[in-house]
Each structure stands twice: as C-alpha cells, then as structure tokens.
Amino acid sequence: MLGARGAALARGLQVLTHSWRRDSRALALARGVGAPRAGHWQPSAGPGPRRRRLSLSAAAVVNSAPRPLQPYLRLMRLDKPIGTWLLYLPCTWSIGLAAEPGCFPDWYMLSLFGTGAVLMRGAGCTINDMWDRDYDKKVIRTASRPIASGDISIFRSFIFLGGQLTLALGVLLCLNYYSIALGAASLLLVITYPLMKRITYWPQLALGLTFNWGALLGWSAVKGSCDPSVCLPLYFSGIMWTLIYDTIYAHQDKRDDALIGLKSTALRFRENTKQWLSGFGVAMLGALSLVGVNSGQTAPYYTALAAVGAHLAHQIYTLDIHRPEDCWDKFTSNRTLGLIVLLGIILGNLWKEKKTDEAKKSIDSKIEN
C-alpha cells in the first residue's frame, strides 16, 4: 500500500515538474519575443482597467523611439544627455552675465543655444565615432556604439552628420554677424579634437577649448561682440572645469586606452590625479572670481562660488580613480556644479537691481535734504 502511494506521489511530482518546465520555457519565449524593453509602456498587473507606466529618462525615450531611428539617436548620445549639459552650461553662464542688471537671461537666446548644443554635441559625437570606430571595437564600454557595432555605415553617418551640421548652421544664422563668424571658427576644433588622443596626453585640453566656445559666443550673441575682461576668464574657467570632469571620465577607460595606444590626462597624471584636479579647481574658481569682479557681480554670485568650491572639494576628495562606476558618478555630478554657477549668475544679476534702487533712494533723500 505504501509502495503504491509512493509511486503515485512520484508520478504526480514528475508531471508537475514537467508542466512547470514547459510553462517556464513558454514564458521565456514570450519574454524574448514580445516582452517590453525598458522605457516602453507596460501594463499593470492585476484586474481592472489596463494602466501604463512611462519612464521619462533619456535612455527610455530613445528606447521608445521607432527602431530604425534608435541607432541614430544613440549616435547623437541622446540617451546620455550629460554631454549636452556640459556643452550648454558655459553658454548659459555667458548669456546670464550679458543680461542687463536686474534682468533674467534672454530666454530666446537660452532656447536657441540649447537647440544648438543638442545638434553640435550630436555632430561632435558622430565625428568622434567615425574617427574612432576601429578603436571603439576594442573597448568594452564603446564596442556597442552604432558605427563600431555596424548598426550604421560610414556612408550613412556622413549623411547624418551633414544633416546635423546643416540644422546647426540654421541656428547659427539666427545670431548677429559677429557671432556667426565666431561660431564658424569653432568648426575646426569640433573636427580635430577627437584626433588629439592619438597625438598628445592632453586631449582633454583640446576638448576644453571646444566645449567652452559658448562662453565667448553667448556674450557676443547678446551684446554684439566679446568683452575680453569677462569672456576670456570665463572661457579659461570652463577649460579648467573640462580638464577636471573629463580627466575623471577618462579614468574609466585607462586600461583599454593603454593597451590600444590612446593617450589621456588620466594616463598622464595616474596616481597624482587628485593633485592635478585640485590645481585645476583652484584655477577655475580664481577665474570665475575675476569674472565676477569684472562684471560687477554681487553677493549671491560669490555665495554660489563658495558652493562650487565645496562641490569640487568633495568631488575630488572622494573620487576613486580605480572604480569606473565612481568615476561616472563624479563625472555626471558636474551638471549640478554648472547649474550652481548659473544660479549664482542669475541671482547675482537680480541683486544688482536691488542695490541700484537702494542707491537711488539714498541719492534722492540727500537731494531732498
């Protein structure tokens, strides 16, 4: 009796196990064929009306785009907007400094430069990936880029680059003649800076010269020409900032770069990286202080600079150059740093009106007396 029951129980378990395995394979097949990817609308579990959740992250938006467009959006790095922010923020600093006392920055200029930053960052990434396609295949982090992986051919990338530059030219033509000439002058930097990692251990300096051109262009777009006493130290401060964040970024790939023969400040500085970054940070803060003096900035601006100094100190002190994930986190935190500078410029400019009103009241009271 017990033997018969045991045999029946064993057969039951065998049937149950076979059924579970079959359902698991069906579920795995369903996931492979029809399961939504990250960023797609997904129905909620349970009874009742079907609900959908939407992720608004940049990567999710790119993943939700039509499949033929996704490689081109990734080529522009629209799924990683931090680079666009780092290109755009020096433009906003310059536009904010050029505003009249007591006024907000020109919103039209901010939107125009924002559009230009997306297009030019995309064009720069396209040029970079075209130059580096053979190197990207050898680096784990970059092997999946659209050109390196074969998702986009060189011919199509040329056409796409032409489209981006044409649209960027349309944005540039909305500015005054001085700014059009100044903006066109940066094209040589955009084309050549991806090559610098083959030539020098200072490609981050070339990137700084390129990425901070907006510090000159923003002021000229508002004022009609550059004021060297403001624009040049602002440009220099941006270059120092780029040397900080892009050196941190370069530490992610230093092993692969060394193996394939590419150069960077990460390989140049090695274990002395924090000392170099500290020097760049001091130079950046000194240049921004000079900008404040020459543009008549007020207390909120210098308060923001103090916050920037604290941010830089924490960023550099806690940096672990041997952990790529920490390098990425520190790199992306520079968007916050740039926004702090912008906030300081805006509030400092608005504070000018308050000081002017107080001075007028004091003069008027003296006249009455």
Rank of each mutant, 00 (worst) to 15 (best):
Y249G: 02
L56Q: 04
S64W: 04
L267W: 07
I127E: 02
P101S: 06
L16T: 05
P105D: 02
A148F: 06
M109S: 13
Y245I: 09
E358L: 01
R335I: 13
C91P: 00
K274L: 03
T166M: 14
Y245M: 10
T298L: 03
E368V: 07
S149P: 10
A221S: 09
G34Q: 00
Q252H: 00
H322D: 15
Y72I: 04
G83P: 09
Y249P: 05
P194G: 02
S179Y: 06
W351K: 03
A359W: 05
V341N: 00
K361Q: 01
H251A: 07
E358D: 05
V230M: 03
K274R: 14
D23T: 15
D23S: 15
S229A: 15
L89A: 04
D151G: 04
W351R: 12
A60Y: 08
M130F: 09
L73N: 04
I199Q: 10
G279R: 06
A258N: 12
D79E: 10
G39P: 06
M196Y: 15
R270H: 13
P90C: 07
L54V: 12
I239G: 03
G281Y: 02
P81L: 09
A266V: 05
A58N: 01
S57E: 13
L350R: 03
T273K: 12
L167E: 11
R145Y: 06
D132A: 07
K366N: 13
S264M: 00
S333P: 06
T92Y: 10
S289K: 14
N128P: 07
R74N: 03
R67W: 15
F331C: 00
C226N: 09
R268I: 03
W85E: 04
I152Q: 04
R52I: 12
Y108A: 14
S144K: 12
W41G: 14
A359H: 07
V61L: 14
R50I: 11
L29A: 15
Q42F: 12
G281S: 07
R52C: 15
W93C: 06
C327G: 04
A306M: 14
L161H: 06
T210G: 05
A310M: 11
R21V: 13
W20H: 13
I340R: 07
L13S: 07
Q252C: 03
L342G: 06
T298F: 02
G344Q: 10
A35W: 15
L56Y: 12
A59W: 06
R11P: 05
E325C: 12
Q42A: 14
A99D: 02
Y88T: 05
R145I: 03
Y177T: 15
P203N: 08
P36L: 01
R74E: 04
A266P: 10
L182M: 07
Y178L: 08
G102C: 01
S57K: 02
A250R: 04
R67I: 12
T84V: 11
S111Q: 12
A123W: 00
M120L: 07
K361M: 06
F331W: 00
R323K: 15
D357Y: 05
N334V: 11
I367P: 03
W328T: 13
G3E: 15
G170F: 04
S278P: 06
D79L: 10
R50L: 14
R268N: 11
G170T: 01
L339A: 12
